[in-house]
């Protein structure tokens, strides 16, 4: 619904309900405030995702240090992980490119975790075990943050599209937000070929 149509519809509604303005005015205020709260909730949830991604980023130097002595054949993968992390810290945190790089990083980390199975000494290393658990925890928290973000986006989008809150959404420029969806490459399973050689 465009802004003008929404404005006209709202005026008509106000005129029709004028005799009971003492009910309609608080309702209108409540609708507007509800939209504001939902928008803020989306932004808060988004920052939650950002925090968890940062926490994961902090684990990477430790991971690279632990594995590079053992995984001399996987140096390219490790180098790519370090480069990805470096690029992520330099770009705009809210940009689409950042999330694409984070997804790429997730894939690389998954591949490293699978490859570690080929190195029994590394697999049983105390520090490595602790690191694996921490990474699993970080991934789980990222997933939870994304789900929380998607839930808050759904609530906001429902309000933006449903009547009568869509009138206020159009007038005050509340826009539909996109969901977090998995990228195509992240939907594929990790490469396990190396495990069976």
């Amino acid at each position: 619904m465009n802004k003008t149509t929404a404005f006209i519809t709202l005026i008509i509604l106000t005129i029709i309900t004028l005799p009971i303005f003492f009910i309609t005015i608080p309702v209108f205020i409540s609708i507007y405030n509800g939209l504001v709260r939902k928008k803020n909730q989306v932004e808060y949830a988004f920052s939650g995702v950002d925090v968890e991604l940062q926490k994961r980023g902090e684990l990477i130097p430790n991971l690279v240090e632990s594995v590079k002595k053992y995984m001399s054949f996987e140096q390219n993968t490790l180098k790519e992980i370090v480069e990805l992390r470096s690029r992520i810290t330099q770009i705009n945190p809210g940009s689409a490119e950042r999330f694409s790089l984070e997804n790429n990083l997730t894939e690389q980390l998954k591949q490293v975790m699978v490859t570690i199975e080929n190195y029994p000494d590394l697999k049983s290393n105390e520090n490595m075990l602790h690191l694996q658990r921490s990474l699993n925890e970080a991934e789980e928290q990222i997933s939870a943050a994304r789900r929380a973000y998607n839930a808050s986006v759904k609530t906001l989008n429902d309000s933006i599209q449903a009547f009568p809150s869509n009138l206020f959404a159009s007038i005050y420029d509340f826009t539909i937000r996109p969901y977090f969806i998995a990228e195509q490459n992240s939907k594929s399973a990790p490469n396990l070929k190396g495990l069976f050689n």
């Binding site: 949830a45 928290q141 997933s143 839930a151």
Partner: peptide, 10 residues
Amino acid sequence: DVQTGYYVLS
């Protein structure tokens, strides 16, 4: 807490 809720309820 919403995020904790989704973390626990995978």
